[in-house]
Amino acid sequence: MIRFDNVSKVYPKQTRPALRDVSLEVEKGEFVFLVGSSGSGKSTFLRLILREERCSHGQVHVLGKDLARLSNWKVPQMRRQLGTVFQDFRLLPNKTVAENVAFAQEVIGKSKGEIRKSVPQVLDLVGLGGKEERMPGELSGGEQQRVAIARAFVNRPKLLIADEPTGNLDPQTSVGIMKLLDRINRTGTTVVMATHDQNIVDQMRKRVIELEKGRLVRDQARGVYGYQH
């Protein structure tokens, strides 16, 4: 699903690489936590998967494709198989819940009939059935993140990237979001989640990848957040 071979990333005008010689593989259907302090390279790691950036050295394979050799105009096709969720939800404030989710389908040219069918389905899945016509501003943070997850999942991606999805939520709401992500993972979708939330990582007992100053320092099956050396 994802394979990094000796990947390094140096941003222009910076001497210290954001990622240094990272090699790892994520299999189909896995649930992976990506941990590390701020500036450890988590965001760069995710941006490389999304091909927002290209790596400086090494190779990044996502969904069997070598991203370095993927031409620009094929990137949108690749991204349609990925879903993305962020800490700040990134909803459109002037569209209703249903419209926000439908937007992700409209802009890739899905038919109206298809949208009418899949939007209520995915809103039920994330537990927002009946709130289709609400505006994002009327919803709680947890509900807004559910809308964002619905939007990321509505096109049935093979891989879901979550960048600190619980960063703005209280612990109880976070648990709800994690249950939802777990449910999505059980449908066969691979999930890669960057997080600072110790409780969640410790509770879920999934694979943990830790980055420190751009290096891969830990890759542990059924790991915990703070690894005692």
Binding site: L50, N72, W73, P76, Q77, M78, R79, R80, Q81, L82, T84, R90, L92, F103, A104, V107, I108, G109, R151, A152, N155
Partner: peptide
């Protein structure tokens, strides 16, 4: 905001 989301969900450059 819109164009950022369009990019992420894989809208083609032309569509954006």
């Amino acid at each position: 905001r819109e164009t950022g989301i369009m990019r992420l969900v894989g809208a083609s450059g032309f569509y954006i």
